[in-house]
Nucleic acid binder design. Structure first.
Length: 110
DNA sequence: CCGTTGACGGCGA
DNA sequence: ATCGCCGCCAACG
C-alpha cells in the first residue's frame, strides 16, 4: 500500500530497469504499487535533476514511443540516443516493439 | 482553498 | 486503426 512519498517508490522502480530494456509509465506505476497513476510517474520523472543517475530514458509510453515533453528542451532526442546505445531498436515509425524490449521483472536482475 | 496542468492510459465513438 | 474524453493525483499560482 502506498505511503508518504510516491516519488521515492517510483524512483526505486525506475532504478531497477535493466540496461537494454524498457518499461512503460503504467508498468512502473504498477510495480511501485501505484496502479492507475501512470501520469504521476511522468510527473515524477520530469522533476528529476539533469544530473540524476537514474535510467529515466528507459521509461516510454504504452505505445512504445518516446513521450513528447511540453517543456521544449530536447530531452526526447537524447533519450533516443541513449536507448540506441543500449541496442534497443526502433521500427520505421519510431516505435520500440514492447514485445521484444519490455522489461519482465524477475527474469534477470540483481 | 480552488482550478489548472501534465514525460499517461484505457475505453468508447 | 485513430481520436477524443475522462480519471488519477501532486504541484503551482
Amino acid at each position: 500500500m502506498p505511503r508518504k512519498s510516491s516519488y521515492l517508490q517510483i524512483y526505486a522502480v525506475v532504478g531497477r530497469i535493466p540496461r537494454g530494456r524498457v518499461a512503460t509509465y503504467g508498468q512502473v506505476a504498477n510495480l511501485a504499487e501505484l496502479a492507475g497513476q501512470a501520469r504521476l510517474v511522468g510527473y515524477a520523472l520530469s522533476a528529476l535533476p539533469e544530473s540524476s543517475a537514474l535510467p529515466w530514458h528507459r521509461v516510454i509510453n504504452a505505445r512504445g514511443q518516446i513521450s513528447e515533453r511540453s517543456t521544449g528542451l530536447g530531452r526526447e532526442s537524447l533519450q533516443r540516443v541513449l536507448l540506441r546505445k543500449e541496442k534497443i531498436h526502433f521500427d520505421g515509425k519510431g516505435i520500440i516493439p514492447l514485445s521484444r524490449f519490455r522489461w519482465r521483472p524477475g527474469e534477470s536482475e540483481s
